[in-house]
Design a protein around this nucleic acid. Structure first.
Lengths: 214, 214
DNA sequence: TAGATTGTTAATCGATTAACAATC
DNA sequence: TAGATTGTTAATCGATTAACAATC
């Protein structure tokens, strides 16, 4: 018998994991030890069967009538997301969005640790943001190599993004979280995650529009 | 013959529309009049057939060998997204993220116009952010009614979100763009769009993790 | 005309959901 | 035990992709 092939967890399921994690932590704080798929589903307005499927991806087994062990689920979800060990990152572009990300308290919970922040603005360079000092762009590669960073967060204006991204790849970055619009053209083995405010707003306004039509 | 039932455009297609729009505007600036699905696909790294399907949703017809009229596509995509007439919004929570959104130049392009911004912090209230003055929370309902606003952007700390959302609904808001984690519990006819940084980061770190395993 | 490109129809793929036996 | 809940298998649903005729 060959070893069971572990299918990759589907993207929609991955997207739901942080919501579960958040809720599980809340249950834990309330002193709960077990939770049923049914109650998670009710809370998040998902279908119970979907929650059970998602839980199956984490590898945690539940007990009929009792549910799932909350600690096990928290551990398994964090592991699945790679949040079990902190993921170090560099951030480029200390505008309002950059500041928002650096200051976002939730991130350490989520395994993300911004170790180095860079900008081109001479007025900003050298000043402190939280516990970090804003660095110039010419030490970008230095920072990445010194800290052994693999993830970069790009919050610069659109026109600079492609050029910076290429520098990042050369410096050894393997994952880029890009907040600027437009597709980055990079080698296929670089993982690119784009968060585009326009896309989110597109969903909202399209839904509103369709609701009005209906 | 009964009238043809217009299926709703699928969500994944809606999410791709802003990318097309961006690219089409760039082509237009370069003086182009026509564009083929093939070239759009190449630029965005989609499959040509997918682009053609997406274009079909806009209702614009292409010409074999020539492609699609760029102006027609721009108009149709904007219409589809409800971006043809500016969508007025109120923003609550002028932290870094709120500031980033208010200052985001792209939004007017995308049909979003933030008309009123509110916060609880007495230090912030009365000060200017761009051309807007930060308002206290007790005039929230006034602002919504005075401007006839239907969309609210929520960038407040998590714990206040549910309460504020309920006020918004009472005041006549029909769409909420929520940046805080957690599900809002609101009447079913309220359109809620959640943009969660944790979810985006979950995708990125899961992809990176799986790539390492592979 | 020849060939590139559209648009339609059908096939495929993958996620969600339903049904139900297993089980604590 | 009885009943709630899990986990598996199959059905359904919906989006993507393939194939190809139509056409400028």
């Amino acid at each position: 018998m060959t070893s069971k092939i572990q299918n990759p967890i589907p993207l929609p399921a991955i997207r739901r994991l942080p919501a579960y994690l958040r809720l599980l932590k809340a249950y834990k704080i309330e002193g709960e030890t077990w939770v049923s798929a049914t109650s998670l589903a009710q809370e998040l307005r998902y279908k119970p069967i979907q929650v059970r499927k998602d839980m199956a991806w984490t590898g945690v087994e539940g007990k009929p009538k009792v549910g799932f062990n909350i600690d096990d689920l928290i551990f398994a979800i964090k592991f699945q997301l790679g949040w079990d060990n902190t993921t170090d990152a560099v951030l480029i572009g200390v505008g309002n969005l950059g500041k928002a990300l650096v200051g976002y308290k939730g991130f350490e919970n989520y395994g993300l640790k911004i170790l180095s922040i860079h900008d081109t603005d001479p007025q900003k360079i050298g000043t402190k943001l939280g516990r970090l000092i804003i660095q110039p762009m010419n030490v970008l590669e230095d920072s990445i190599k010194r800290f052994g960073i693999h993830i970069a967060i790009l919050t610069t204006p659109t026109e600079y993004v492609q050029g910076i991204a290429e520098r990042l790849v050369t410096a050894g970055i393997t994952g880029i979280w890009n907040f600027a619009p437009g597709k980055l053209k990079l080698p296929a083995d670089i993982v690119i995650q784009r968060t585009d405010l326009a896309t989110s707003f597109a969903e909202l306004s399209s839904k509103i529009k369709n609701q009005i039509i209906k």
